[in-house]
Nucleic acid binder design. Structure first.
Lengths: 237, 237
DNA sequence: TCAAAAGTGTTCAGTATACACCCATGT
DNA sequence: ACATGGGTGTATACTGAACACTTTTGA
């Protein structure tokens, strides 16, 4: 029986989060330094070979956890890349994209600094300042960012970056960072309030100015509508 | 080196077109009767194993041509399905979805009838009246239809079903069939005219009533915006 | 002349946008 | 008190939906 022998299947994930830097909040993602050929010493998306007993989405979740020590707030398949010449050997990569909550990333980083147990060969990069990448991973990241910017317009994926409770200004800052442009605070407030995806709490974030009400994501709804695929993605087996 | 050995890669395509039947225009797709286990004698999406020298999109275009004798007016990757238990052996299917022009399908069918050279084991089914399918192909088709219905709202994929020249009523009928609901002719006209994706010709379709102006798709624009992926999909090598 | 589809005009509601303005807090 | 961000009000423009109306053909 003729099979697709000689083709290997890999799973990689573009793991996105927002990080507060000296240049404000920026989109960032963790990359892994390759230790082997091809592209030894180059940075690449976290991932690995798909094993015989693991679903692709499970492999994505696993490598994500291995790389970051965290669980994603959102995980969706991006695309299957399979051009013949994208790797010296024949590799089809099923690529996922994921969102991490900023606070969890920060907490994890602090923990790593405290314990000195940070993973080797993993580093966070700003999405707009990437090093030379292995394979076609630069184009893959470009597509992942396009998908994120697209989806932020008609879904609530931006909430995947934020902690349990957040102010509308924080949510707006997340969206502004993703889109790369400023939004009118008044209109943003009304739009997101009327969307019904937020639950107002009785708490307020007290800071330098008038306290801002804290909101939380409504728990019943998905961050994005994935149609009939919801069940598939859900079952990480 | 540990590879994903034991995993085979297949490429399948949900090939969609509109066909005029006794119950009006309906979404239809060609299925292939399987001749081997597993699921022998069941109907399945056209496809085959990914070969070592072929890009996935090329394999999709090839099997599409082998099944229908036609070239698609639109071809896009749908999803990579890889659940462990979706097949007795471990198979990852990269699934595409494609649109065929109705007139080309009709012409091809007439040709087959004339010459008696219709492909064996291929049959067209109405999308809302499918037989029991092999593997997870029923869910795959459901997802392809969801994607089509979704995309028809913010792109001009519906034009992929129509011939070079068509009336606004024909375009509207296509959209109505996809969405499963009637649209206001007046509003539809204005929306599609203001979108700038159509070019009015000087010809008219003469029929039972007032002649309707013929339009053609503007050639410069894609049927749908696929962002940075346009180049990938284009290169069918 | 009449039925029916092609095509135009108009109204109305909902939504995006711009921006003026008031509110509540820390300094 | 005042600067600053939180939060409300409002005017305007645009868009989608509903529907009345005119035009043009074949029968």
């Amino acid at each position: 029986m003729t099979r697709s022998s000689g083709i290997d299947v890999a799973v990689s994930t573009a793991i996105l989060t927002l990080r507060r830097t000296d240049r404000g909040v920026v989109l960032s993602l963790p990359l892994v330094r390759r230790t082997r050929e091809p592209f030894a010493d180059r940075w690449a998306l976290p991932g690995g070979w798909l094993t015989a007993t693991e679903a692709p989405v499970g492999a994505a979740a696993r490598t994500l956890a291995e790389t970051t020590g965290l669980a994603p707030s959102y995980l969706e398949q991006l695309y299957a890349f399979g051009a013949v010449d994208r790797s010296p050997s024949r590799v089809v990569s099923i690529v996922y994209w994921a969102l991490l909550r900023s606070d969890q990333v920060d907490a994890q980083s602090a923990e790593y600094r405290r314990t000195g147990l940070a993973p080797e060969n993993v580093r966070w990069f700003d999405a707009d300042d990437l090093p030379p990448l292995a394979f076609d991973h630069a184009q893959i990241i470009e597509y992942a960012l396009w998908r994120l910017r697209n989806k932020v317009g008609y879904s609530r994926v931006a909430q995947g970056f934020l902690p349990e409770e957040f102010t509308l200004a924080e949510l707006r800052e997340a969206v502004e960072t993703i889109l790369g442009r400023r939004l009118d605070p008044a209109n943003f407030r009304r739009q997101v309030e009327s969307s019904g995806t937020l639950i107002a709490t009785d708490e307020f974030r007290t800071g330098n100015h008038r306290p801002a009400r804290l909101y939380r994501s409504s728990p019943d709804a998905e961050l994005a509508d994935r149609g009939p695929l919801s069940s598939e993605e859900m079952s990480i087996r």
